[in-house]
Design a protein around this nucleic acid. Structure first.
Lengths: 138, 138
DNA sequence: CCTATTTCAGTGTTACTGAGATCG
DNA sequence: CCGATCTCAGTATCACTGAAATAG
């Protein structure tokens, strides 16, 4: 008779690893005075350049509602500028400021440190293998 | 200049894979008329045998508060029996019933189907590698 | 008219916290 | 007196929903 064990379940192992990573990330962002949502929006802005909030939400996989709240905070800190789109009155055009670019650089270091912390038990070849397999899961 | 991309982050890939797996699991449990917490408690009971709620919570990694709520539902369905511990008045002894064992068997099939669904893109060797690497992440 | 965007308020879920009652 | 257990109520968080206002 085979006793069921959660530790044998791929979904359980995924959930544990992800939960641990998420906790470390959240702590690191809090310590750095930021949030995961803010980081994701800054990354999206750096990737696609100035964009509407709807497009940013799609890029960062953030809900339209959370985009609003997060941009409010980023704008208050001077990390983004929000101005109406002259060619489409429904939209804002959101752009990174220089301070925003510096903030993103700073958060990149924070995030990189957490990646190292999470992957620490694996050697470089194992890390590549893990990433490739995770990517294969779609 | 290297544009940051979320897809390059191990923590992001972990989170995506885990989120997808979690969603599939949740749907499958809902369709089967159960919940993840209930499954985890049934597994813990099958592993350790009759136990106090506190011990079950530690085994299943469930909060004491969620153990109470989940056991209420499992007891109402006749899947577990809760009776006072004669040797320690603070505790309940919780035990699987026959119906509970059948329920666990049923849920094992549900869970196995989701594992297959999640791992579908990987061949058997890749699956073993992924599990080994995830386990190494502690 | 219908769809898209931005915004705000509110909901539901999941995990947790606090406190009371009981007992060792 | 301290610590553990069980229970309930309430909170914090995150992701999302609904609806209003504006515009294409």
């Amino acid at each position: 008779m085979d006793l069921p064990r959660l530790d044998d379940l791929p979904t359980w192992l995924l959930s544990r690893a992800s939960g641990r990573a998420h906790g470390l990330l959240q702590d690191a962002f809090r310590e750095a005075g930021s949030r995961g949502y803010a980081y994701r929006l800054l990354v999206a802005l750096a990737q696609v350049g100035p964009a509407s909030q709807a497009d940013l939400g799609r890029s960062a996989e953030l809900d339209r509602s959370d985009v609003v709240t997060t941009l409010n905070a980023l704008a208050a800190d001077g990390f983004v500028e929000r101005r109406p789109d002259p060619s489409d009155g429904r939209r804002n055009i959101v752009a990174l400021t220089d301070a925003g670019r510096r903030e993103l650089d700073r958060l990149q270091d924070v995030v990189a440190a957490v990646q190292e912390q999470v992957l620490h038990p694996l050697d470089p070849a194992e890390r590549r293998t893990l990433l490739a397999l995770l990517r294969k899961l779609r």
